[in-house]
């Protein structure tokens, strides 16, 4: 009995991988998908909102609010300052945005605990239960759909693919190398 374990981000590729497996003869009930909860982890805070997730208090809130203030003031006083309204507006936007960003970071320090997991992380764990002769194909299909990693758990039992000594073959986790990916 072999289990192939893969980790993915949420994406359309994940559903393409699952449907490709089904098309290639892996029954639907032998595929287990576990979406991970990303919000409650008490992990070190992220600084930047990413494509994957944001904290309720986005880092652009303060930056854009104060950036706009800076830009208005820059436009107004630019008319009486030597560099003109355009340059001062841009300087005001930049200055205000930096100030707002720093203030946001300072204020939100207290909310660290509620933050999201840091950086690019696994969002879904996929377990596929397959036979030994399906293994290569399953692995190939998974690698074709941009997983974050694929591992194999081989627990072949006595009488199935034993080593002849009568002892059960120990379960082993072998990570497959990245070079097998078709990217």
């Amino acid at each position: 009995m072999i289990h192939v374990i893969a980790s993915f981000e949420h994406s359309a590729y994940l559903e393409l991988a699952i449907t490709a497996l089904i098309k290639n003869g892996v029954p639907k009930e032998k595929i287990l998908a576990v979406p991970l909860n990303l919000e409650k982890s008490k992990v070190k805070k992220t600084i930047f909102d990413t494509i994957h997730r944001a904290d309720g208090v986005s880092v652009v809130d303060g930056a854009m609010a104060l950036g706009t203030v800076g830009m208005v003031l820059g436009t107004i006083y630019g008319f009486v300052l030597s560099w003109g309204p355009v340059l001062w507006a841009l300087l005001g936007l930049l200055g205000g945005a930096v100030l707002g960003f720093i203030l946001d970071l300072l204020i939100n320090k207290r909310r660290q605990e509620r933050r999201w997991v840091q950086g690019k992380s696994t969002e879904v764990v996929l377990l596929i239960n397959c036979s030994e002769n399906q293994l290569l194909q399953v692995e190939d299909i998974l690698w074709q759909h941009y997983p974050q990693g694929v591992g194999i758990l081989n627990q072949s039992r006595e009488g199935e693919h034993g080593d002849g000594s009568g002892n059960p073959v120990k379960g082993s986790m072998e990570p497959t190398p990245r070079s097998r990916s078709h990217q």
């Binding site: 949420h10 639907k28 009930e29 032998k30 595929i31 998908a33 576990v34 979406p35 377990l127």
Partner: peptide
């Protein structure tokens, strides 16, 4: 997508690693 996966790919009969 998380809801879709939970509804469709968490069969109670799935054979877990022993």
């Amino acid at each position: 997508q998380a809801r879709f996966l939970k509804q469709n790919y968490q069969d109670p009969a799935f054979f877990m690693p022993e």
